[in-house]
Amino acid sequence: MGRVLKYGRKRPFVLDIALAMAVGVVIGAAVHVSLPANFMVWLSRIDLSVGRSSLAGTETITGPAVVIDGDTLSIHGRRIRLHAIDAPELSQNCTLNGSSYSCGYESKRYLESLIAGRTVTCHSRDTDKYGRALATCFVGEGADLNARMVESGQAIAYLYFSRAYAGQQSDARDARRGIWKGEFTEPYQYRKRMR
Rank of each mutant, 00 (worst) to 15 (best):
T72H: 05
K192Y: 15
D16A: 13
D174N: 13
V4I: 15
E106C: 00
G24H: 10
Q168M: 04
E186F: 13
V33G: 00
A84G: 02
G167V: 04
I68L: 07
L5N: 12
A135E: 06
G77H: 08
G167E: 09
R79F: 09
M40D: 03
K6C: 11
A65D: 06
A65H: 08
Y160H: 06
Q189P: 00
L82M: 05
C137K: 12
E141V: 10
R78V: 13
H32L: 11
G182S: 02
N97K: 13
A164Q: 14
S107L: 08
C122P: 04
C122A: 04
A29K: 15
S124A: 15
T58L: 12
N93E: 14
G70K: 03
M1I: 05
D174F: 04
G57D: 10
Q169H: 05
A37S: 13
V23E: 15
Y188M: 09
L96D: 00
V23K: 12
L15A: 11
G142F: 14
G2I: 08
R132D: 03
F13Q: 10
E106H: 12
Y130H: 09
N93G: 03
L35F: 15
G153T: 10
D126V: 07
A155H: 03
G63L: 11
G70P: 02
A147K: 14
A56H: 15
W180M: 05
L82P: 02
G2C: 07
I80S: 01
L48A: 09
E89G: 01
R195I: 10
L19C: 06
G24M: 15
A155C: 05
D126K: 07
A135V: 06
E151V: 11
L55E: 13
G142Y: 14
L19W: 05
S162P: 07
S34F: 13
V66G: 01
D128G: 01
L82W: 05
Q189L: 14
Y158K: 05
P187T: 03
L111C: 04
Y130G: 00
L55P: 00
V66P: 00
M149E: 06
G24I: 11
Y158Q: 03
S99Y: 13
D69T: 02
R125Q: 12
I75A: 02
L5V: 02
S100F: 05
E186D: 09
K181N: 00
R81N: 03
L35P: 03
N93S: 12
T185P: 01
S34T: 14
L111H: 03
R193T: 13
A84Y: 01
A166Y: 12
L145N: 04
I68S: 01
